[in-house]
Computed example of a mutant assay.
Amino acid sequence: MLKSISIAAGALALCMAGTVMMVLPSQHAAAQSAGMFVNAVDLDIVPAEREKFLAAITENGTASVKEPGCRRFDILNLASDPNHFFLYEIYDNEAALKAHRETPHFKKYAATTANMVAKREARPMSVVASNAR
């Protein structure tokens, strides 16, 4: 009798350990996504400067994703307006975004495009949930 109780307790402990291990990764993923910081930027470009702007922002985006705290740097173009761009940048935290703004490639981009941007609206955001496939 004592042996069967001991076996049952052992089996229960193994089941519980398996359940905990299945729960922990999702909690870890949720904690990671909760810490992400997004910089969402709308840009209206001077029409005559579009191609030069596109070259400059592409160079900046390519260099940005190589930074330690930058997870993503998407450059989107509004389908109905070839001169409207949207930047979707994901960083580990706000400090990583601030560090990005101090890099030589960002400073070059900012100086190069200063007269190309007719309107700029940046919106810092925190990630509530990240759903990707």
Rank of each mutant, 00 (worst) to 15 (best):
M1S: 11
M1D: 12
M1L: 09
L2K: 09
I5L: 15
I5Q: 15
S6Y: 01
A8L: 11
A8Y: 03
L12G: 12
A13I: 14
C15D: 12
M16W: 14
M16P: 12
V20E: 12
V20P: 10
M21T: 07
M21G: 03
M21N: 09
M22R: 15
M22D: 15
S26N: 14
H28K: 15
A30W: 06
A30L: 13
S33A: 08
G35L: 03
M36Y: 09
N39G: 07
A40R: 06
A40G: 07
V41T: 12
V41Q: 01
D42V: 12
P47V: 05
A48Y: 08
E49C: 08
E51A: 08
F53I: 04
F53Q: 10
A55F: 05
T58W: 01
T58G: 09
N60G: 03
A63P: 09
A63Q: 13
S64M: 05
E67H: 01
P68N: 04
P68Y: 00
C70E: 08
C70S: 12
R71K: 10
R72L: 09
F73W: 08
F73N: 11
F73V: 11
D74V: 03
D74E: 15
I75E: 10
L76Y: 06
N77G: 05
A79V: 15
S80T: 15
D81V: 09
D81A: 10
D81F: 02
P82C: 01
P82S: 08
P82L: 01
P82G: 03
N83M: 02
N83D: 15
H84D: 10
F86E: 11
L87K: 01
L87F: 00
Y88H: 11
Y88R: 06
E89A: 00
Y91I: 05
D92W: 00
E94L: 01
E94F: 02
A96T: 06
A96P: 02
K98L: 03
A99W: 02
A99K: 07
A99F: 01
A99M: 03
H100G: 05
H100F: 01
P104G: 05
H105V: 04
K107I: 04
K107P: 05
K107Y: 00
K108M: 07
Y109M: 05
Y109P: 10
Y109I: 07
A110G: 02
A110Q: 07
A111S: 13
A111I: 03
T113N: 02
T113A: 01
M116R: 04
M116S: 08
M116D: 10
A118N: 12
A118M: 07
K119M: 06
R120K: 04
A122K: 00
A122Q: 07
A122F: 01
P124Q: 03
M125V: 05
M125C: 12
S126P: 04
V127P: 04
V127I: 12
S130I: 03
N131I: 15
R133H: 09
